[in-house]
Simulated scan of single mutants.
Amino acid sequence: MDIVPLGPGFGAELRGVTLADVASDDGVYAAVRAAFEEHSVLVFRDQEATDELQLAFSRRFGPPEVTKVGSQGTGSHFVILSTIGADGKVVPPDHRLSLRSKANQLWHTDSSFKRVPALTSILSARIIPANGGETEYVSTRLAFERLDPAMRNRLQSSFAWHDYAHSRSQIAPDLASPEERGALPPQCWRMVWKNPVNGHGAIYLASHAYAVEGMEKAAGKKLIDELMAFATAPGTSYLHQWRRGDVVMWDNRATMHRGRPWPAHEARLMVRTTISATDADGVDTMRPPSSQAAE
């Protein structure tokens, strides 16, 4: 397996390895898992990413999430990210599927709004537009390292509230349905996630974050906005330009990402599996002291 660096200090393409290799070989999995812990974003090119194989690959890294209510793929282990309607045609820009795609263009980390947050997301390209539709990543681990020591110390004992409805309301007031709001109440997480394998800390934030525990609302939101801007500063990102057969996985503990726009008339179909974080991934240390027992 060859590891080819991609981004500014993070991200790598793995060559000479397939999803099937990882799914079936303990040694290959161990090497890929080590690369994941080090590089945070991994790219696999020219893969035969069937649903069955993607799920087998994903299960290597932990328990797969069941897709939430209100999403394409609800009740399965797959999140279907598509702008193709039931009639097989691309939906108009004001359609709910298009609005959800716009919400994914906000900087975020997956599942920070859930009772169990995510370790990793695995995304495969099935149908891609001729132009645009890239996915952009930043390392919140490297952002944490760039902070001054006083802020690093402050964040390690700070907690932020995350809410799915908050991020969706930035696109449309009712984009999060009543069913989604009921199923996904706000969650509180430590603002620094320490990797138990290598000890690196990373800022844990997303567009879902709306308040800081113990801070006045406006001041907390200002701190969140400043940290988000700091972590996504120009020159710090890796922009992945998709090709058919690409599979990309990323560490939700140590990155943020966003989709990029593409022409509204062009179809895009991506399939995501998401792996829940466990205590072995450090999730037990992320809860406020009053609720650190595992869910």
Rank of each mutant, 00 (worst) to 15 (best):
R168F: 04
G182R: 14
Q170G: 06
H162K: 11
A176F: 00
C188S: 10
R168T: 03
D163H: 07
A160V: 05
R181C: 00
R168C: 12
L175H: 09
E179Q: 15
H162P: 08
W189A: 10
W161A: 04
S167V: 08
D174C: 10
L175N: 10
E180D: 12
E180A: 03
G182H: 11
P185A: 03
D163K: 06
E179L: 15
C188N: 07
W161K: 09
Q170T: 03
E180V: 00
G182N: 13
A176S: 11
H162C: 13
A172Y: 04
S158D: 05
P185I: 00
Q187H: 06
I171C: 02
P185Y: 00
F159S: 05
P173H: 09
D163E: 05
Q170R: 12
D163C: 05
C188I: 08
Y164C: 05
C188F: 01
A160L: 03
Y164F: 14
P186G: 04
A183R: 13
Q187W: 05
E180C: 04
P173L: 07
W189F: 14
S169I: 06
A172T: 04
D174I: 00
A176P: 01
S167K: 12
H166K: 04
H166F: 09
P185C: 02
L184K: 14
A160C: 06
A183K: 14
Q170A: 09
Q170Y: 05
S177L: 06
P185W: 01
P178F: 14
I171Q: 03
S177F: 02
W189T: 04
C188H: 03
S158Q: 09
W189L: 11
P178V: 14
H162W: 14
Y164S: 09
A183W: 15
E179H: 13
